[in-house]
Design a protein around this nucleic acid. Structure first.
Lengths: 232, 232
DNA sequence: TAGTGGTCTAGACCACTTT
DNA sequence: AAGTGGTCTAGACCACTAT
């Protein structure tokens, strides 16, 4: 397929960082010449990228790499740090744990590894205006993020880092309401247990399962929102 | 726009029920003739409807109205009855309340009405294999569903009924974890309070806000799942 | 074999933005 | 005025499905 070769070309420019946010993308005519296709075919590539939210097209002006925050719609892979900063609140991360551990049965299954295989494990509490709003327990496949343990997660979130080293292609979520364990209460600075929203997320890149994360939010401090439109 | 006239035409056939699930949709060539446009333009209309999940296209065979369940992707407007039946479990609905009430301040604001204006109110518990898994408290705008109170909600869910009388065009969700009230515990047959997942949903049709619903699920009996793909 | 959707071409005109 | 994206046309060839 010619149009998908063009998409791949642009996708790699974006994924590699060569074209950062708001960077102009070649025009329909330029791509048509470059790839020796008709304008309609180049157009289709750009149109699909726009539908997927990777680029923004604007009439008379051109096509640009979309700001990351607009790249997915509902319940997307959000970056909690950006969300908090978008509300003009203080964001702070406390790294409670960052080490290598042997995979438990459950973790091995989720990551597609053998039980006992080494995996990276981190526990980070994310605070808004000094109050923890999420504790993130994360298991990472060492194959796809070998330098995970050497990152400073007070400056970059695991999600940001992992997206950079292994662009994600797929994600699944589970959302449930739970009573937090004593350990989680401690991380969230909850004096007594209260209902918590738990999001379990697995993400994939081309190289396989990247990470398995359990995100716990205190019910009193967090609401998940979303919006859907059905354009007939 | 010519392609959007074609989309409207097909959309109304589906919304009116004239074309039920799996009903064949006119072919690209047929639509091109009927609307006096080129095949590429008719094609675009069908393609966009397919992208929106309203129709399924299959090479060599034709285009068909999509089964309702596949019409939205993640966290979509699900029909709890269908979901339970899809698991081959027993589904049962208990209608606890179905009446007209004056809108409270909060409800009036959510529905875009004056406080004190009459609204329809229903409380229905949805059970899977005899165990309540969701209690649905719903406020309905009487302007868009005048016959709401005369429905038998043990046979059709409010969501199904409202979709039929006012095709929804937009929806917003909030998800949070809460401790249920004594009243909700009663409806859910919970002997003691446990963390519950609460989904607050507002839906719109062309005529305005249709309904404001509070859906409460016991944490021990319910998990919300979803899947995202980023096709480069 | 006839019909369907999937892909592609080489033009065209328009409304819009940028310079 | 030049360039861009948005829409549309009238063809074409292909792979697939149904009969």
């Amino acid at each position: 397929m010619k149009f998908s070769k063009i998409k791949q070309h642009i996708y790699s420019k974006i994924a590699s960082g060569e074209w950062p946010e708001n960077h102009p993308v070649s025009s329909e005519n330029a791509l048509a010449n470059q790839f020796s296709v008709s304008r309609m075919t180049a157009r289709r590539a750009l149109q699909e990228l726009a539908d997927e939210g990777l680029v923004i097209r604007s009439k008379g002006s051109g096509t640009y790499v979309a700001p990351l925050k607009s790249q997915t719609s509902f319940m997307a892979i959000r970056n909690i740090a950006d969300e908090i900063r978008a509300r003009n609140h203080d964001y702070e991360a406390h790294v409670h744990t960052l080490k290598q551990v042997p995979a438990s049965l459950q973790v091995a299954e989720q990551l597609g590894l053998e039980p006992g295989a080494p995996v990276f494990y981190s526990v980070i509490a994310h605070s808004e205006n000094g109050l923890p709003v999420q504790v993130e327990e994360r298991y990472v496949n060492p194959m796809v993020a070998a330098d995970y343990l050497r990152q400073d997660f007070t400056y970059i979130t695991p999600h940001e880092y992992l997206s950079a080293v292994a662009p994600l292609t797929e994600a699944s979520h589970q959302i449930e309401a739970v009573t937090p364990s004593a350990q989680v209460c401690d991380w969230l600075e909850l004096t007594k247990p209260e209902p918590c929203l738990r999001i379990i997320r697995r993400t994939w890149s081309d190289a396989g399962v990247v990470t398995y994360a359990v995100l716990t939010h205190p019910g009193s401090r967090f609401v998940l929102g979303g919006h859907l439109t059905f354009k007939p």
